[in-house]
Design a protein around this nucleic acid. Structure first.
Lengths: 194, 194
DNA sequence: CTGTGCAAACCATATGGTCGGCTCGTAGGA
DNA sequence: TCCTACGAGCCGACCATATGGTTTGCACAG
């Protein structure tokens, strides 16, 4: 019963990857049949593993959130013990995705499509709560951490939905956010302008 | 020939509003029929004004972009002539939408759905370019302006897709961004932390 | 032999888009 | 001013089709 379970796990994995690909290119028009074909599986076979299309997409959303979290923790330098370590991992993971660029339009499609799937909103909300707690434990001034994370999110949105950005600009933006994360305290001590 | 044209304009307006409402609640599942019913029009009547569903949604996207731009310029204080005036309008318009809150989930659905419509990506890209140029003429240090706008976008995303945020937190975030926009120069002169 | 992963045919239905026709406002001539 | 012809806005029935989900059957591991 072990080989079988392995097969099940592998098939689910293959289907999830196929779903990401097809949804990334065809958006909400991605049919179960198309996903199944991409996965090299029949529609019946797919629906044997995922009760419905919505449940498949929900699982995909959870899977992607998990993958991103893993990327963030992987991007956090293990030798970095200063406050803001996780924030820096978040920034780096975000911009790494963006700078790769090869799959940016697909990711935009993917994100937009998944957001319209019933149940995904709750998943995102739970995810948000987890990040919030993680950042609170990261030691940086909350206002500062929030600003940095928001800016990273905004850059991601801009990069995803509004066309690929200039790589050089992305790199600069990342450096700025990283620099901001290496300092601490409220953000008010700035030279005033006329 | 004038009354007729008025009718056409009004009907198109009604249909667009209906589309925003239905798409906001039903996402990509919003059918032409449902939109037509919401608008008090038959499906045939609707398709008389918009050649296809996609074209309707594309028009809706353009319309919403235009509405947001109008809100930004309306939110910019006419007596404000310091650099960053438009940035402040952008921040205020964004957070006004977010703080209203009543239609936040609908707007999230709406945005996500429209992003999957063919042609909307190009519209967003053009829109982005317009904003970029407008901000460049706004006089603030580019890096600073970009950071503020990105943070506002990120806050919008967080508010829209990850569940309504705490109003108090939103207000604080807005004040921070506005404060940042009232200063100028690069963002490096911050107290370093151990 | 048995149960599980999977295929393929099948079904009900929803949806986008078309079409012929009806209504009524408008233009233009008498 | 009145009448008529025209055309635009609009309706509602219709059609082809794509899609989500079910069911039946089969092959194979244990």
């Amino acid at each position: 019963m072990q080989g079988r379970e392995r097969d099940t796990v592998r098939t689910r994995r293959v289907v999830l990857d196929a779903a990401a690909k097809v949804v990334g290119t065809h958006g909400s028009g991605a049919s179960v049949d198309a996903i199944a074909r991409q996965a090299g599986v029949s529609k019946g076979g797919l629906l044997h593993h995922f009760r419905s299309r919505d449940q498949l997409l929900l699982t995909l959303a959870e899977d992607l959130a998990e993958q991103f979290a893993a990327a963030v923790y992987a991007a956090a330098d293990p030798r970095d013990h200063a406050p803001g370590r996780l924030v820096r991992g978040y920034v780096n993971a975000t911009f790494d995705d963006l700078l790769d660029g090869s799959t940016v339009p697909e990711q935009a499609m993917l994100a937009a499509t998944l957001c319209t799937v019933p149940g995904v909103a709750e998943v995102l909300q739970r995810d948000k709560q987890r990040w919030r707690e993680a950042f609170e434990a990261d030691g940086l001034h909350p206002q500062r951490a929030l600003l940095i994370v928001r800016a990273a999110d905004g850059a991601a949105i801009a990069g995803l939905y509004e066309g690929g950005s200039d790589p050089e600009e992305l790199r600069q933006a990342r450096e700025l956010l990283l620099a901001l994360s290496r300092r601490d305290g409220p953000l008010v001590d700035l030279p005033e302008v006329g």
